[in-house]
Amino acid sequence: MPLLEVCEISKKFGSLVANSKISFKVEEGNIVGLIGPNGAGKTTLFNCITGIYKPSEGKVFFDGSDITNLPPYKVARLGAVRTFQIVHSLKEMSVFDNVLIGAYLRERNTEKAREMANQCIDICYLTKIKNTRAGDLAIGHKKRLELARALATSPKLLMLDECMAGLTSTEVNESVSLIKSLKKKGITFLIVEHIMEAIMPIADKVVVLNGGLKIAEDHPEVVVHQESVIEAYLGQKYSKKFQLAAKGRNI
């Protein structure tokens, strides 16, 4: 049974169709990338899954139960936790308190929740800036803080909405290795990402959206060879590079 199953989700804003009959599955322990050009409907789909929007049609199943019309906090309590594309840190609170709020979801006891929060802070390399006000952080740290807060809720599925946009290449590499190590611990990922260098090597599967439609779903190396995907999104340059590399391997 897949951990997350999206069945024919459609979302309309008036006459604008943001998502049209999108279906895919996320198997437990996998990393699934959700890619597509700007305005393809990735974030809308995220919002439909996490309950921020109510989908116009279709159903979402998580861990065997129907979560289609549940409010966001119930979805989070079931174990599907997201981060936001535009970071929403709790500005006036310290980094530690931000993460502590995540930890409180599973642990009412303050001492134990503190311990959990400290662990998540260590994992996400935020130890040095633990007591800094979240509003004062640089963007790279803010994105990692989002991840740490989500992680502290002990999720089954982590949904990251462009958690690497705007980071330097070193920071991207750090994030990638962090995601890899979390995957080993059994966390499933659904990642919206624009940075192909980051998502392609780690994803077990990518789903490509364009104009609200799903145009491809397969292993990353297969997807980049599909003409529709190349046209819609990746651009000639990157796909040529990829194809050359593939040819090189064949020879």
Binding site: Y73, F84, H88, M93, I101, G102
Partner: peptide, 18 residues
């Protein structure tokens, strides 16, 4: 802590299970 989370950002609070 939950009160302060709601004050700072209701959307984040909800997404964190509050």
């Amino acid at each position: 802590y939950y009160l302060r989370a709601v004050r700072e950002d209701q959307e984040t609070a909800e997404a964190t299970g509050i």
